[in-house]
Design a protein around this nucleic acid. Structure first.
Length: 292
DNA sequence: CGCCAGGTTAGAG
DNA sequence: CTCTAACATGGC
């Protein structure tokens, strides 16, 4: 059984797949050259999916369990969301073509898109895990978390992991998470997010119906989800083009570097700079991050 | 020991 | 709405 997903004309496979290789500790997908394997949630089941990039398409296969029709549809839309295949970036290219700050990096990495996180629970947890710590350490925490509390399957001797489910995480305690080197704060926040999902306070479906500002407010009602985390999820999960994490130190450092500043810019300066990218802030962020 | 890292909260002004 | 201190934990 094979599904074919067409790619946008400007899609650059090596560039986007390089993002998937960011950390050797990433357990949520497995790369074999340019072939990606991932265990994807679909209708209460988890299906192992193999994605092979070919000329202008992704070839999608199911090496282990075969999905039913509805699962195939869910998996296809998951992949389109994951790899950001449904956006036309032409206006962004036009917007940045003469922009001092971004024109070079956008020209250099044309065809680079936002590899997203279609799973909202994963996206929020990952953001919380990454708060205020360096990225390699964040991957270390995530891999322990996934390994210990996530489901997995074994296919041909290789293990494939799925992100832990809210109902599992909601039942954890500090005594489960502190040994993984979560701070008490992170432990609390992750469990608060899980509880919000378990109790039905938050769901991707429900939030996706809200306008941008209301969606942000709703996310920020969870303890531990501030402006940075909410915007991260709005960008990576809901794919709002206008979302961006204003407080992100990566953005600040990128601006400092590109402009040759002695100090990181203030939040007001960042806001002023981002006015130029109105409607495309998420992609401005992506390309700023790419300069680091 | 100091400073930084993909921040958030609670409290005060 | 904005500013500040306090909070944690690892890495260099």
């Amino acid at each position: 059984m094979t599904d074919i997903i067409p790619l946008p004309d400007d899609y650059d496979v090596p560039l986007n797949f390089a993002f998937l290789r960011r950390s050797p500790l990433e357990l949520l997908h497995v790369l074999d050259g340019d072939i990606v394997y991932k265990l994807i949630y679909a209708d209460n089941g988890k299906i192992l999916v193999r994605i092979t990039p070919e000329q202008n398409v992704f070839k999608v296969e199911y090496p282990d369990v075969q999905p039913n029709a509805s699962q195939r549809a869910l998996i296809s839309s998951f992949i389109r969301e994951w790899f950001d295949l449904d956006n036309d970036l032409t206006p962004f290219y036009a917007l940045t073509a003469k922009d001092k700050l971004l024109k070079d990096v956008v020209a250099k990495y044309r065809g680079y898109r936002i590899v997203g996180q279609p799973d909202l629970f994963e996206s929020l947890c990952w953001a919380v895990i990454g708060q205020q710590i360096n990225v390699p350490f964040a991957f270390k925490l995530k891999s322990r978390f996934v390994e210990q509390f996530g489901d997995s399957i074994t296919w041909r001797g290789q293990k494939f992991y799925a992100f832990p489910e809210p109902r599992v995480v909601a039942n954890l305690n500090d005594s489960d998470l502190l040994p993984l080197q979560f701070s008490i704060q992170k432990s609390r926040y992750v469990r608060a997010i899980a509880a919000a999902f378990r109790d039905g306070v938050i769901s991707k479906e429900r939030i996706s119906l809200l306008p941008f500002d209301d969606a942000k407010k709703k996310l920020m009602e969870i303890k531990g989800v501030g402006n940075w985390t909410a915007n991260y999820a709005l960008m990576k999960t809901f794919r709002y083009k206008e979302a961006f994490p204003l407080e992100d130190v990566g953005i600040h450092n990128a601006i400092k570097k590109l402009k040759g500043l002695a100090e990181k810019p203030t939040l007001d300066q960042v806001k002023a700079i981002f006015k130029k990218y109105k409607g495309w802030e998420a992609y401005a962020t992506l390309y700023l991050w790419k300069t680091l």
